[in-house]
């Protein structure tokens, strides 16, 4: 079985610093895969390259067997890979509902003339999109705020809204960039439940997160990044015991330097 998302030999350098340095990994369809690693290990740059916001210097990205590297972000989103941003992004002046109705894919069968003239076809499409949007708003628990402008939402609520917006196009895979960073700890389990529910609906997730408990409880597979490439991978419980991972996070202990060679 081919993986849903396959990254091979991805390279991205900034002025000679190789932020992503030959990274290869895969995300299996239907999984909740974690992507962890120390700060500066290249996780964010890697997903920027995968989602099209930065152009990789080398390497391939395949989504469901089709190459998506080099495509602009909007094409990648329409192909079925959407993402959220670390610095939570929503349209502040729009209501929660409007934030979801902006998403392009549900309206793919209508054109500008349909939208301008409010044709029968457009109104039907709009009705279906609205129904889906209301379902997602319910899923993330923002129903009470459906018609409230996003700027009055709390930080955590905005993250949930951004999550719902990423789900709106019914993507095959969603990349979540730190979904619970800065979220009230008592709410972290709620976010995990929402991700699980969406996953049961058939959506694959790739999650960047520093919250170890969140990753351990939620993910069935974890990829560990260090120095711009995959260090190791496996089930979360095993990965956390891996001495390589401890080294990457905590540094090498004196007299215990088996991995220095990797850096060179």
């Amino acid at each position: 079985m081919i993986p849903l998302l396959e990254i091979s030999d991805l390279v991205k350098a900034f002025r000679g610093v190789r932020a992503v340095d030959g990274a290869s990994f895969a995300v299996q369809a239907g999984s909740i895969t974690g992507l962890i690693g120390p700060n500066g290990s290249g996780k964010s740059t890697a997903i920027d390259c995968i989602s099209g916001f930065q152009r990789a210097d080398a390497g391939r990205v395949h989504l469901d067997g089709t190459a998506i590297d080099g495509l602009p972000p909007q094409r990648i989103a329409r192909a079925g890979l959407t993402r959220t941003f670390q610095d939570v992004r929503v349209y502040d002046t729009y209501t929660v509902l409007e934030n979801l109705l902006v998403v392009a894919k549900p309206f793919a069968t209508t054109n500008w003339a349909d939208a301008f003239l409010r044709t029968q076809k457009f109104r039907e499409t709009h009705g279906q999109a609205e129904a889906r949007a209301l379902d997602l708003i319910d899923l993330v628990g923002l129903t009470r705020l459906t018609h409230a402008p996003a700027l009055i939402l709390s930080y955590g609520q905005k993250k949930l809204l951004a999550f719902a917006a990423a789900m709106m196009s019914n993507p095959s895979i969603v990349v979540l960039d730190e979904p619970v960073a800065g979220v009230n700890p008592t709410r972290v389990n709620e976010v995990a439940e929402i991700v699980r529910a969406a996953n049961r609906g058939g959506t694959t997730f790739l999650i960047i997160e520093h919250n170890v408990d969140f990753i351990t409880s939620l993910c069935d597979h974890v990829i560990v990044f260090d120095r711009g490439r995959k260090l190791t991978e496996g089930p979360p419980a095993e990965v956390h015991r891996d001495p390589l991972v401890l080294d990457a996070y905590l540094g090498v202990e004196p007299g215990h330097e088996p991995h220095l060679a990797r850096a060179g």
């Binding site: 989602s51 099209g52 916001f53 602009p72 972000p73 909007q74 989103a77 329409r78 959407t82 993402r83 941003f85 992004r89 929503v90 349209y91 502040d92 002046t93 729009y94 409007e98 109705l101 902006v102 998403v103 392009a104 894919k105 309206f107 500008w112 939208a115 301008f116 409010r118 457009f122 709009h126 917006a165 990423a166 709106m168 196009s169």
Partner: peptide, 27 residues
């Protein structure tokens, strides 16, 4: 008619946050 249509909604989304709009499939 143009500004109150979905085209107007999309335009103001691009104005507010172009990268977010792109991540939502908007060119």
């Amino acid at each position: 008619v143009l500004e109150t249509s979905r085209i107007g909604l999309t335009l103001k989304a691009i104005k507010q946050n172009e990268t977010l709009a792109q991540s939502q499939g908007i060119s």
